[in-house]
C-alpha cells in the first residue's frame, strides 16, 4: 500500500515536471517535423540530411518536401548555408535530372522547403539519386543517396513532351489536388528541359484545358479556366470543373498565345488530345 502511494506520488511529480518542461521548450524540443513523413536521410559525417514529405512516399509528379540538416552530436537541426539539391535519374543507358525548385526557408526554423517533379518511377535497375550540398561553418559538404519513387497512385499527373518548338517540357499537377464534383482550383508547374541536367521554369505560356469523360461519350464540363502563370504563387493557376465522379481526361492545349506548343483541340473527330492529364474521383 505504501509502495503504491509512493508510486502515485512519483508518477504525479513526473507529470508536473513533464508539463513544465514542455512549456519552457528548452531541454526537450519536440520534433518540429513530426507532422511530416520521413522519406529518407543522408549521412554526411556528423551531419545528417533529413528529408520529409507531405506523403509517406515519393511519387511520380509533383512532391513537396521539407529538408533539414541535423547535427547528430546534439541531435538538433542546424542552420546551414548554400543548401542545394539535385535529383538525377540513373537509367540503364543514360542519366537525366528532373525539375527541382530552389530551396527556400520554411515556416519551421532551420528547415527548408522545395519541390521535386519526378517524370518517372524508380525500379530495381533504374533509380533516382538525390545530391544535396550545404555548408556548415565554412566547410562544404556534399552527400547523395538513392530515392524510391513510386508511380502516382492516381493516373497521369505528370507528362513530359516534345513541343512543336523542338523544346522538351515537363508539366506536373500541383499537389495536393483533391478534386471534387465542383469547379476546382487547379495548379501546375511547367518546365523546359535545357539539357539533360538542366530544367528551367516556363512562365509565359497558356495551358488550355478541356476535361472529358471518355466513358460518357466524351462529355465535357462548362466554366473551365485555362491555366495562366501566377508570378506571386510561382505556378500556373486555373479552374477545372468536374460534373460527376468517375474517370476524367484533362486534355491539354499549350500555346504561347499564337502558336501551339503541344496539344490538340477536341472535336467530334478528335476525341483526345495528344497531351493530357488524368483525374479520377
Amino acid at each position: 500500500m505504501k509502495n503504491t502511494i509512493t508510486f502515485i506520488q512519483i508518477f504525479l511529480l513526473t507529470l508536473i515536471f513533464t508539463s513544465c518542461s514542455k512549456d519552457d521548450d528548452t531541454s526537450m524540443p519536440a520534433d518540429p517535423l513530426a507532422a511530416y513523413h520521413r522519406i529518407t536521410s543522408l549521412e554526411a559525417g556528423r551531419y545528417e540530411v533529413a528529408i520529409y514529405g507531405t506523403d509517406e512516399a515519393l511519387y511520380t509528379g509533383y512532391n513537396e518536401l521539407m529538408i533539414g540538416v541535423r547535427d547528430t552530436e546534439t541531435d538538433e537541426l542546424i542552420e546551414v548555408s548554400d543548401l542545394n539539391w539535385k535529383p538525377v535519374m540513373h537509367m540503364n543507358a543514360m542519366m537525366h535530372s528532373a525539375p527541382a525548385s530552389p530551396l527556400s526557408p520554411s515556416a519551421i526554423e532551420a528547415v527548408s522547403t522545395g519541390y521535386l517533379i519526378f517524370q518517372m518511377p524508380s525500379n530495381s535497375e533504374e533509380y533516382w539519386e538525390l545530391k544535396v550540398d550545404f555548408t556548415v561553418a565554412g566547410t562544404a559538404y556534399s552527400v547523395s543517396g538513392s530515392l524510391m519513387v513510386a508511380s502516382s497512385e492516381r493516373y497521369a499527373e505528370v507528362v513530359s513532351f516534345m513541343g512543336n518548338d523542338e523544346n522538351r517540357y515537363v508539366l506536373a499537377l500541383k499537389r495536393p489536388f483533391e478534386p471534387e464534383v465542383a469547379t476546382n482550383d487547379i495548379g501546375a508547374y511547367l518546365y523546359k528541359m535545357e539539357d539533360m541536367m538542366t530544367f528551367s521554369p516556363v512562365t509565359d505560356l497558356v495551358i488550355g484545358i478541356d476535361p472529358r469523360m471518355p466513358g460518357m461519350g466524351n462529355h465535357s464540363s462548362p466554366n473551365n479556366e485555362d491555366l495562366l502563370y501566377d508570378s506571386i504563387a510561382g505556378f500556373y493557376k486555373g479552374k477545372l470543373s468536374l460534373t460527376m465522379t468517375g474517370y476524367w481526361v484533362v486534355n491539354l492545349l499549350i500555346t504561347d498565345g499564337v502558336n501551339v506548343i503541344k496539344g490538340e483541340e477536341i472535336t467530334e473527330d478528335n476525341l483526345q488530345s495528344n497531351l493530357y492529364l488524368e483525374v479520377e474521383l
Binding site: G215, G246, E280
Partner: peptide, 14 residues
C-alpha cells in the same frame, strides 16, 4: 452510372 470499364470508378451525381 455504372462504369462500363471496371477499372474506372462509377459516375455519381446529385
Amino acid at each position: 452510372m455504372f462504369s462500363n470499364n471496371s477499372e474506372q470508378p462509377d459516375m455519381y451525381m446529385v
